[in-house]
Design a protein around this nucleic acid. Sequence first.
DNA 1: GAATTGATATCGCGT
DNA 2: ACGCGATGTCAATTC
Lengths: 260, 260
Amino acid sequence: MGNTFYITNPTNEDLNNFINLYIERYILILLARCKVFYEGRAKSQLEEGDRLIIIKPDGTFLIHKDKKREPVNWQPPGSKIFWSIERDCLILNSIRRKPREELKVVISRVYHACAFKCEDYEELNLTGSESEMAEMIFKNPNLIEEGFIPISREYQIPTGIIDILGKDKDNRWVILELKRRRADLQAISQLKRYVEYFKNKYGEYRVRGILVAPSLTIGAEKLLKEENLEFKKLNPPKGGKRNLNHNVKSKKTAVLDEWL
Amino acid sequence: MGNTFYITNPTNEDLNNFINLYIERYILILLARCKVFYEGRAKSQLEEGDRLIIIKPDGTFLIHKDKKREPVNWQPPGSKIFWSIERDCLILNSIRRKPREELKVVISRVYHACAFKCEDYEELNLTGSESEMAEMIFKNPNLIEEGFIPISREYQIPTGIIDILGKDKDNRWVILELKRRRADLQAISQLKRYVEYFKNKYGEYRVRGILVAPSLTIGAEKLLKEENLEFKKLNPPKGGKRNLNHNVKSKKTAVLDEWL
DNA sequence: GAATTGATATCGCGT
DNA sequence: ACGCGATGTCAATTC
């Protein structure tokens, strides 16, 4: 199958041809010795060493060291690439327009280069997100409390977007802030910001704020109590087969037997 | 130089040997057709397609589609990898202990595999960060205002960590919240949280809060004014040669002529 | 190990 | 294009 090509210990001329052939259509992978310079929102330099360089057809540019999940330098999708040979080095230049950012890689040696034509028509199907928590609450409002009525989802106010706005059995406004994982100080501040806006509009005693999350950090719990906000423990749903398929566009393949 | 090895269109036996030889010592790169299953903090599946798979010696596991900066699935450093051949497929299993997370890749075809021994002793040298803004303010407090005296950096209170705590010319407490980029609603809430704690302690009129950033979002600007907080426009310093070297451990190489 | 925050955060969804 | 918030955020630092 002709979807992968490679060269090993190429000359600069070989490299130039290789890049010309495959750039912007294939994923390009370089195992190379290089220096890296970045300037844009910040500025950095990285002295010479061996790194893994990836250039995707969408303009994504990644430089990985042999450690960590994060690339040491990068450019996002949409960046434009330029290259040249100077002083016996291959120079890669990736430019982002807005904000203006430039990533320059000076490659002294390429050990191995591959080009890979990715045929991939599938999208990730994820469950256990905050938006699935919201759906669950709308379907079964009693998960929050007896008599809770959800009214609006992602309700916009000047100070942000309320996850779920509803009313309780005594007709008070209820503002829900959802977190799919342990909630921190920032989550409490966010909820407080929304509650304050509503209290200014409808009066102190007509508004409640409830943080909905699996748990709270210590600091968050203290602040929550001081601010007279409430907490409702709730885990995000991690659907089995049925829920996993909730957002699936294609259902071609069944989940592996072993997986369940 | 024997730091890179590769096989093309390998049999499962070839692959098994290849992985055995290089895993945990080399960066392994697979260009492959695969399905991916993840379960841990959330849960996902990805149906069959071509992807780039990277396994670093530190346990980092990355699966990249041909688009976007982010891997579609991953495991962080420290994850443990297991592999086997089942039903004519290579199965890669990467396990993280805390939180318990499992990433399973079912590979039906490997087009090309490389192993790369990365020799890299250099660390990234970055300038233009928030911590450099703080240093700049300590060195030249007048950047904030005439008579400002910084007292403490990263001062901890129950509701968080104050970037810079100081006093103004009238001996009022001044709380600075720094942002290296445009500040949003969240930044204002954060500053407000700190200011409220100090006002409770020292009284309404003995405390000021100043957001220090290059700019504000519209919503942030409105909320800032409503809350009687202040704004001081300041850009993070992106050092030239001198500042660039501020945190440098090794100064082996000079910045490329062309770069400056 | 828990908590807190920064990041060249990236990404997606609104207006 | 800008504003805003979620993310399996990651990674560093401090307690």
